[in-house]
């Protein structure tokens, strides 16, 4: 496998607060990488840098060997980068089906019928078919989150950036999401994914590898089990969770 995304020494600060401090991240074609860390560790900032919403103050980001750190989000869209948002960013005046369709352009060489079929397929895969003709405000939160993922996937991206897709979902909705994402992987094995998620079980069940951020720094990366066993990770992230669980 060749490296699809290479981020080197990415740095980003907001009003003196170092959100990212020389972070490296490399994702191969077809690789599913989990990006985990405590709240405020810089995960979403990293995702915003990768998707182009933020321009890094230092470092470089290459996609398929081309430098993209200065390119705008829509240029990265053209290169096959898609993303979801932590809080669903769906257009309130469009139905879920129409929102998913905005993930495709005529530039994809699809006829209207093909476009419709692909949208329907994505909605079905993520269990939103029943709400396809509803406006986001009339659909359950889980359907809104799933429609966000479906919109990102409908254009068959090279690199998919998922920002907490399971946040706010019930246990059964999480299971359905995992199954749908696995099916997507079977259909498109070349697609690379960077997944931010607090549900470690979900990340472990989907991802091949993990990168762990803490206070804006990369503290560990590698195979899932090896990373989860890492002492620094347990202390920085899992340890916090464990103490919280013990406290509750």
């Amino acid at each position: 496998m060749s490296a699809l995304l290479v981020a080197r020494g990415v740095s980003m600060a907001f009003a003196g607060n170092q959100a990212l401090d020389a972070v490296d991240l490399m994702i191969d074609e077809g690789e599913w990488r989990g990006l985990i860390g405590p709240n405020g560790s810089g995960k979403s900032t990293m995702l915003n840098v990768l998707s182009g919403l933020y321009r890094p103050q230092g470092g470089a980001v290459d996609l398929d060997g081309s430098s993209i750190e200065r390119r705008r989000p829509r240029a990265r869209y053209g290169l096959g980068v898609r993303r979801t948002f932590q809080h669903p960013q769906l257009a309130a005046s469009l139905t879920l089906s129409e929102n998913v369709a905005t993930g495709l352009r005529r530039g994809h060489g699809l006829t209207s019928a093909e476009l419709g079929r692909r949208v329907d397929r994505c909605l079905e895969l993520f269990g939103c078919s029943a709400f396809a003709d509803r406006l986001p405000r009339h659909a359950p939160y889980g359907a809104q989150k799933s429609a966000e993922v479906a919109r990102a996937l409908v254009g068959r991206p090279k690199l998919l950036l998922l920002d907490e897709p399971a946040a706010g979902l019930s246990a059964s909705e999480r299971r359905e999401l995992v199954e749908a994402l696995r099916e997507c992987r079977r259909e498109d094995p070349a697609m690379a994914v960077c997944l931010i998620e607090h549900d470690i079980g979900l990340v472990a069940s989907l991802c091949d590898s993990l990168s762990v951020l803490s206070a804006g720094q990369l503290i560990a990366e590698g195979q899932v089990q090896a990373v989860l066993a890492d002492e620094r990770v347990r202390e920085a992230y899992l340890g916090t969770s464990a103490s919280q669980e013990a406290g509750s």
């Binding site: 998707s51 829509r74 898609r82 960013q89 469009l94 905005t102 993930g103």
Partner: peptide, 23 residues
């Protein structure tokens, strides 16, 4: 039209519009 549809996306969710290839 489908173009009108994407115009609504810009008005109601600008970050998503930009992330999905719209100027």
């Amino acid at each position: 039209s489908r173009y009108g549809r994407v115009f609504f996306l810009v008005g109601e969710s600008e970050p998503a519009a930009e992330a999905f290839g719209l100027p």
